[in-house]
Write a protein that binds this DNA or RNA. Sequence first.
RNA 1: UGGGGUGUCGUCAAGCGGUAAGACACAGGCCUUUGACGCCUGCAUUCGUAGGUUCGAAUCCUACCGCCCCAGCCA
Length: 561
Amino acid sequence: MTTTQEKSRDFIRTIIAEDLKNNKHGGRVVTRFPPEPNGFLHIGHAKSICLNFGVALENNGVCHMRFDDTNPSKEELAYVEAIKKDVQWLGFDWGANLFFASDYFEQLYDYGIQLIKMGKAYVCSLSADDIRQYRGTLTEPGRESPFRNRSVEENLDLFTRMRAGEFADGTHVLRAKIDMTSGNINMRDPVLYRILHASHHRTGDTWCLYPMYDYTHPISDAIEGITHSLCTLEFEDHRPFYDWLLDTLGTPCHPQQIEFARLNLTYTVMSKRKLLQLVNEKYVSGWDDPRMLTISGLRRRGYTPASLRGFCDTIGLAKRESSVEMGVLENAIRNDLNDTAPRAMAVLHPLKVIITNYPEGREEELAIDNHPKNPEMGKRQVTFCREIFIEQDDFMEEPPKKFFRLAPGQEVRLRAAYLITCDKVIKDADGKVTELHCTYDPASRGGSAPDGRKVKGTLHWVSARHAISAEIRLYDRLFNMENPEADKETNFKSHLNPDSLQILAGCRLEPALAGATVSDRFQFERLGYFCLDCLDTSPGKLVFNRIVTLRDSWEKMEKSN
RNA sequence: UGGGGUGUCGUCAAGCGGUAAGACACAGGCCUUUGACGCCUGCAUUCGUAGGUUCGAAUCCUACCGCCCCAGCCA
């Protein structure tokens, strides 16, 4: 017996454990992740991916990758590739189980014939407008279509000719024959097939008849032997049809659909439609803009797969609608990178410091741990000399109480180097501080004084003579409102944060960073975690993305005062 | 006014008739050559509301209230 508390199971894992216990599906667990290839995956999809693949992994099952590609007018091959890459990058493997709903078009069609023969489906020749009229409203029942009682022969003939391309778009649809008075609108003779003379990214021009999601999904699940079909809450109303279809068809496999609440995060939008708008209207540089909460955006920003999986673990799973604070995501990446990212020193806003009593021509090598808690990550050398850069924020001419950084007459430690004291402040004509003159304590090499005096502040620094230059991009939340969609009167785009990207040129980095390779992640001490940008970095130019800041209790203190 | 869901700390979220887990946030303290990390302490006498059943209710019953989804030939 262990004393560690068992992590509580979510309601879906509870159901699955129960099913396993009762041998409901012969002890099998088969799930599926069914994206539509009409956009990039986002953090909300990560929740579903972690759930579906996670649950399979935990139960010796498998998770199928299935593209729900039933609408040729919105879908593209490029999205298929991007989605596959994202899922793999997240760390999941579908093995041989890569499927496309379009692979089932022929079987789906045969099932359509079967439904017609059973008298459970008919060709309806009402216009789209009329179908809507006949459907009724939320509170009034619908009316039966005048075409509802066509003979099986006529339906068969029409359906065959629909496939053959004899009719124009919108002239006929195939509908299930269920109940026009049902309180559930999805049961009022839902459309199964529509005519679409459009070419499909996989089947080309083979078809001009395409199945609807509601019809395709249950059958695809059944064909693949899915045991648990996990989807989001808005499909709860569709479950009766899901079950009706498979019961009517008498498929040997009848998966159980279970719905869970989709992920919402503060300070962002999560719908593909809105993300697409941001891309198309150039509010961001693309689907993989580091400010986008797409998987590819997060990847480029520097988030690790492990941090995203950890995040999905923390947020839990339930049926009630909720909105997770952005801080939880940030916490996930800090947690991961705190353990794994090597430390380095970088100065974002350089302020020159001259150590007046340090010999002009002298330079010395100092060793610094790459990680404070993990000696196995080794040490590196940094060069100290008479001229260095510190962060502008680390100096104040008239410091408030508890400002432990540099100020006239105040002593601080330069990380792993020496204790220095500020003697003189040099300013330009506008009164802006341009340079500091300091003296160092030669006995404090390494950063501590032999007399044991306490120095509270420690600053990061780089040698002005040895530092390399880099561009650093600071990102902030894309929206400046917790829920950009809350205000129905205004467009979500009017809540975009104008300061979501700040580009800093001429940042100064310790020379060791010149050897960084694409996607390397570092903690720049006292600043945050940074990742070498994979797109804009070139041999002569380093570009770092700030993934997330470090927690900053000084900033918090300042704000509360 | 039809149908389907859902209401437990600021935010997520356990709990399944035996007397409110955990995480993030927040507050205070310790530690610190990163104001980081780490560590310690505190943080729902109360579970949408009102009744009822019971020795005992967040858990069962009744009524009410709030919020979300559904009227695509989208998924």
